[in-house]
């Protein structure tokens, strides 16, 4: 099944104003009707938690109300409707998208993807031994940059049974497991992308079912850290990062959000194909990051200004 990845995450919230401000400060562009978009048109929708057009909430009260996947074409959409229609209701909404649920009640949508092809350069790095990547006289850093999220990368669920959840996404929707934390859950990618993961499942007690975090791809590590620094300077609180994961190699920086889950910036994720053999590790501080940095207010190693002569 040619599923590309999440196109849109839909949240039902109480505090629409704060969620709106948070998403604008994060760097998404307002697209009207509560929709906020990254550069490629993927994004987040914020609605009132009582909005009758939203699927029913999970028992846990998670504010994530729906994950809408982008698929390659109409025939993929039809194949999904056939497959999931075997044992559950699949509704065709007025806009032509499909709506249904996974085996644990997470609401899913499917649509022909809204992703616009992007043509942007990534962070360019110069290093001895490699031909210059950034041209002569091109500077690498602009101190007041406000980097923009490029594309919705992945969503992470707390699930009551990660084995059963993995089986659903693998057997019914063709996701492949890239790597796995033993006893915790898999990093999975659908057939239409090479990204290490668009979905990560974390096993938890049932009352926790919900969204752990979601993430947009940035143009490189500098963009992750500059965007995160801008968030800190606006008064938002870091949850974890900046750092670099081992599984997926993605740079990360997580922020708490008024959507009741973390919202991350990531960059430079590994790509995989059928040749890749999934790794497995025990979850812990060592296995989850290559290194972890901690934000500190700007400081420089300088003494007081030199005394002027004659004083």
């Amino acid at each position: 099944m040619n599923i590309i990845g999440p196109d849109t995450l839909v949240f039902g919230v109480e505090d629409i104003d704060n969620c709106t401000q948070f998403l604008l400060d994060y760097g998404l562009e307002p697209a009207g009707n509560g929709r906020f978009e990254a550069l490629d048109g993927t994004g987040v929708v914020i609605a009132s938690k009582d909005d009758p057009s939203l699927p029913a909430p999970l028992q846990s009260g998670s504010m994530l109300r729906k994950t809408i996947y982008g698929v390659a074409d109409q025939s993929t959409l039809a194949a999904i409707a056939d497959e999931l229609g075997k044992d559950r209701e699949v509704t065709v909404l007025n806009d032509g998208t499909l709506e249904t649920t996974d085996d644990f009640g997470f609401a899913l949508g499917f649509q022909v993807t809204v992703r616009k092809p992007l043509s942007l350069s990534a962070e360019q790095v110069n290093a001895p031994g490699n031909s210059p990547k950034r041209g002569v006289n091109e500077v690498g850093v602009h101190s007041h940059a406000e980097p923009k999220p490029r594309s919705l990368s992945h969503v992470v669920y707390f699930v009551p049974d990660s084995v059963k959840a993995e089986a659903f996404y693998a057997d019914r929707l063709g996701f492949v497991t890239s790597d796995r934390f033993t006893g915790v859950g898999p990093f999975m990618r659908p057939a239409g992308t090479d990204d290490h993961h668009t979905l990560f499942l974390i096993q938890t007690p049932p009352h926790m079912q919900g969204c752990e975090h979601f993430t947009f791809h940035m143009g490189g590590p500098t963009e992750v850290i500059q965007a995160g620094t801008n968030m800190v300077n606006k008064g938002y609180e870091s949850f974890w990062g900046p750092g670099r994961h081992i599984f997926g190699s993605n740079w990360f920086w997580y922020f708490k959000s008024p959507m009741g889950c973390n919202m991350e910036y990531d960059a430079d994720m590994d790509l995989h194909d059928d040749q890749w053999v999934a790794r497995e590790a025990t979850l812990g501080a060592d296995a989850s990051q290559a290194f972890l940095l901690q934000f500190r207010e700007k400081w420089a190693p300088m003494g007081p200004p030199p005394k002027t002569s004659g004083q």
Binding site: N18, F158, Y236, E237, K256, S257, P258, N262
Partner: peptide, 20 residues
């Protein structure tokens, strides 16, 4: 989730924004 934002929207509870 933001400096000093310790209460949930209703003001009834202290909230951890990480996972609600």
């Amino acid at each position: 989730w933001r400096q000093d934002a310790y209460l949930d929207p209703s003001g009834e509870h202290i909230m951890c924004a990480a996972h609600g």
